[in-house]
Amino acid sequence: EKTLKIVADSEEEAEALAKELAEKYNLEVTIERNPEEEGKYVITIKIKP
């Protein structure tokens, strides 16, 4: 299993990107607040072998 993390500037941007990735590529995608940067969100994508 591989994990890729993407940082987005807004929750709306994160949700839109996560939804597109999940639907288009059938990936497991989660969104959470970035504890290191206020106002940023981390999109985590898990790629199963």
Rank of each mutant, 00 (worst) to 15 (best):
I6D: 01
I43C: 03
K40V: 05
K24Y: 09
E32M: 09
E36S: 12
E32L: 06
N26R: 06
A22C: 08
N26F: 08
I31N: 00
E11D: 03
T3R: 06
R33A: 14
T44H: 08
Y25T: 04
G39L: 03
L27N: 06
D9N: 13
I6R: 02
I45R: 00
G39H: 06
E15L: 15
N34E: 08
V29C: 10
E12L: 07
I31W: 13
D9H: 15
K5S: 10
D9V: 03
T44K: 05
A14V: 02
T30C: 07
T44I: 15
E37L: 14
K19G: 04
K19Y: 06
E38T: 07
Y41K: 02
A16M: 12
Y25A: 02
E15Y: 15
D9S: 11
P49F: 11
P35F: 12
K19E: 03
K5I: 14
L27A: 15
G39E: 05
A8S: 05
A22I: 13
S10D: 04
K2D: 10
V42A: 02
A16K: 13
K48H: 13
I47Q: 06
K19W: 04
T30N: 06
T44W: 03
P35K: 10
A16N: 09
G39Y: 05
L4D: 03
V7T: 12
D9L: 06
I47F: 14
A8T: 10
I31D: 00
A22V: 13
T30Y: 09
E32D: 11
I47W: 14
E1S: 07
E28Q: 09
K40R: 09
S10P: 00
E28F: 07
Y25C: 13
A14R: 00
I6M: 05
I6P: 00
T44P: 00
A18H: 02
Y25K: 02
E20V: 13
L17Q: 02
L21S: 01
Y25E: 03
T3Y: 12
E13D: 06
S10G: 03
R33D: 03
K40Q: 11
N34K: 05
A18G: 04
I47E: 06
I45D: 00
K19S: 07
I43N: 00
A14Q: 00
E32I: 05
G39I: 02
I31E: 00
R33H: 07
A22M: 14
E13Y: 06
E20D: 07
I47D: 04
Y25H: 08
I6G: 01
Y25F: 10
E38H: 11
A18D: 00
K40W: 06
E11Y: 15
K19D: 02
G39F: 05
A18I: 06
L27P: 01
E38I: 04
R33P: 14
I47T: 09
I31H: 01
E11M: 15
D9Y: 13
E20C: 14
P35V: 09
E1L: 05
I43G: 00
I6N: 01
G39K: 03
K19C: 05
E23V: 04
T3S: 09
P35W: 10
E20T: 13
K40T: 09
L27E: 06
E1F: 01
E12S: 09
V7D: 10
K2S: 08
L27R: 04
E1Q: 10
K46C: 04
N34G: 10
E1G: 11
V42E: 04
N34I: 14
E28R: 02
Y41I: 06
E15C: 11
I47M: 12
N26T: 04
E23W: 06
L21T: 01
V7H: 14
I47L: 15
E11Q: 13
E28H: 09
K24I: 09
A14L: 02
A18C: 04
L4V: 14
V29M: 03
L21N: 00
K24G: 03
L21A: 02
E37I: 12
E20W: 15
E32P: 00
R33E: 11
I43Y: 01
A14W: 02
L17M: 12
E36L: 13
K5H: 13
V29K: 00
T30M: 11
K19R: 11
A18F: 04
A8F: 15
E20H: 13
E23Q: 12
